[in-house]
C-alpha cells in the first residue's frame, strides 16, 4: 500500500515536472520570439560592426580590398602620439564639461522660470526656445555660418552697431575662440530639448509638497533646493547622461561649421575620425579612433548607469 502510494506520488510528481518542463520550454520559446528581432538588429547593426572595427583597427587598411597588412597595435600607438588626436580628446571633454556646467543649468533655470515662475507668456517662450531643436543639424549650422560670417555676419554687424569701433571677431576663424563659438551654436540648438525634458520632470513634482514646505516657513530657495530639485533628480541624472554622450558624438554641426578647423581648433573625436580615417583612406587608423571613442562612451555609460542612475530603474539593470 505504501509502495503503491509512493509509486503514485512519483508518477504525479514526474507528470508535474514534465508539465513544468513544457511550461518552461514554452516560456523560453516565447522569450526567444520576443527577443530575437531586437537581438538580430543589435547583432547586425551594432555588435558585429563594433567587433569589425576592432579587427580593422589592427590593420593598415585603405578601405579597398582585403585586410593584408597586419600591424598589431601600431594604429593605437600612432594616435596616442598624435598631437591632434590629443587635442580632439581634450576638445571633446571641454565640450562635455561646458555642456554640463553651462548648458544644463541654463536650461534648468529657464524650465523653472517658465514652468513654475509667474512669467507672462510662458507658452510663447516655451515654443520659441524649443524651435531650434526642431531644425536639422546641417540647417542649424548653415544658419549660424551666416550669423558668424566675419565680414557680413549678423553677430559682427550687431557688435558694430552696439559698440562702434570694436574689432570684428573671427568667430569661426580664430583658433582661440572657435570652440566657444561652436559651443554657443550647440547650446542654441540643444537648449530647448533639455528645457522640455526639465519641464516634463517638473510636472512630476507634486505642487502640494512645495506648498506644504512654504506653509512650514521655507523660503523659495529652500523649497527649490530641498524639495523641487531633489524630486527632479531622475530627470537631471538622465539629462547629464544624454548630454555627456551627445558631446562625445557631436559631428554634423561642427563639420558643417568648421570642419574641425582652423588648424584643429575645433577638432573633436568624431571630426578627427572622419578626417583622418575616412577622408584620407586610412580606415584601419579610423577604426582605432572609433574603438577609442566607443570605449570612452561605453565605460561612461556603464559606470554612470551603475553608479548614478541605478536608483532610477525599478528593476536591476545588470
Amino acid at each position: 500500500m505504501s509502495a503503491l502510494r509512493s509509486y503514485a506520488s512519483t508518477a504525479t510528481r514526474s507528470q508535474a515536472s514534465r508539465d513544468k518542463l513544457r511550461n518552461n520550454l514554452r516560456k523560453a520559446l516565447l522569450i526567444f520570439l520576443f527577443v530575437a528581432p531586437g537581438m538580430a538588429i543589435f547583432l547586425t547593426f551594432l555588435l558585429i560592426p563594433v567587433l569589425g572595427s576592432v579587427r580593422y583597427s589592427l590593420y593598415k587598411w585603405d578601405g579597398f580590398g582585403p585586410l593584408t597588412n597586419y600591424v598589431e597595435l601600431a594604429n593605437y600607438e600612432r594616435l596616442y602620439n598624435h598631437s591632434v588626436f590629443r587635442l580632439a580628446v581634450q576638445h571633446s571633454f571641454m565640450l562635455m564639461a561646458m555642456s554640463i556646467t553651462i548648458q544644463l543649468p541654463m536650461a534648468l533655470a529657464i524650465a523653472l522660470l517658465v514652468g513654475r515662475g509667474a512669467l507672462p507668456g510662458s507658452r510663447i517662450f516655451r515654443l520659441l526656445l524649443f524651435v531650434p531643436y526642431v531644425f536639422s543639424e546641417p540647417i542649424t549650422a548653415i544658419i549660424w555660418l551666416y550669423v558668424l560670417h566675419p565680414q557680413s555676419g549678423l553677430a559682427n554687424l550687431t557688435l558694430d552697431a552696439l559698440l562702434p569701433g570694436t574689432n570684428r571677431v573671427a568667430w569661426l576663424g580664430d583658433r582661440d575662440i572657435v570652440l566657444y563659438s561652436v559651443f554657443g551654436v550647440l547650446t542654441w540648438k540643444y537648449f530647448g530639448f533639455y528645457m522640455i525634458l526639465y519641464m516634463a520632470g517638473l510636472q512630476g513634482v507634486n505642487k502640494d509638497l512645495e506648498e506644504a514646505a512654504r506653509v512650514d516657513g521655507a523660503n523659495w530657495r529652500q523649497v527649490l533646493w530641498k524639495i523641487t530639485l531633489p524630486l527632479m533628480g531622475n530627470t537631471i541624472r538622465l539629462t547629464v547622461f544624454l548630454s555627456v554622450l551627445g558631446s562625445f558624438q557631436q559631428f554634423v554641426t561642427i563639420w558643417v561649421l568648421t570642419q574641425g578647423g582652423p588648424v584643429n581648433g575645433s577638432e573633436v573625436l568624431a571630426t578627427y575620425l572622419y578626417k583622418y580615417g575616412i577622408q584620407r583612406f586610412n580606415l584601419g587608423y579610423g577604426s582605432a579612433v572609433a574603438v577609442v571613442l566607443f570605449m570612452i562612451t561605453l565605460v561612461f555609460s556603464l559606470g554612470y548607469q551603475r553608479l548614478v542612475m541605478r536608483q532610477d530603474y525599478s528593476a536591476e539593470v545588470f
Binding site: L148, H149, P150, Q151, R168, V169, A170, W171, L172, G173, D174, R175, V178, T258, G261, P262, V263
Partner: peptide
C-alpha cells in the same frame, strides 16, 4: 588677407573679389 579668412571658404573668397574688397 581679409579679416577672419581662416574661417571663410572659397565662396567667400570669390565674394571678396567680386565686391572689389
Amino acid at each position: 588677407f581679409p579679416e577672419g579668412y581662416l574661417g571663410m571658404n572659397y565662396g567667400d573668397q570669390q565674394t571678396v573679389m567680386l565686391d572689389e574688397a
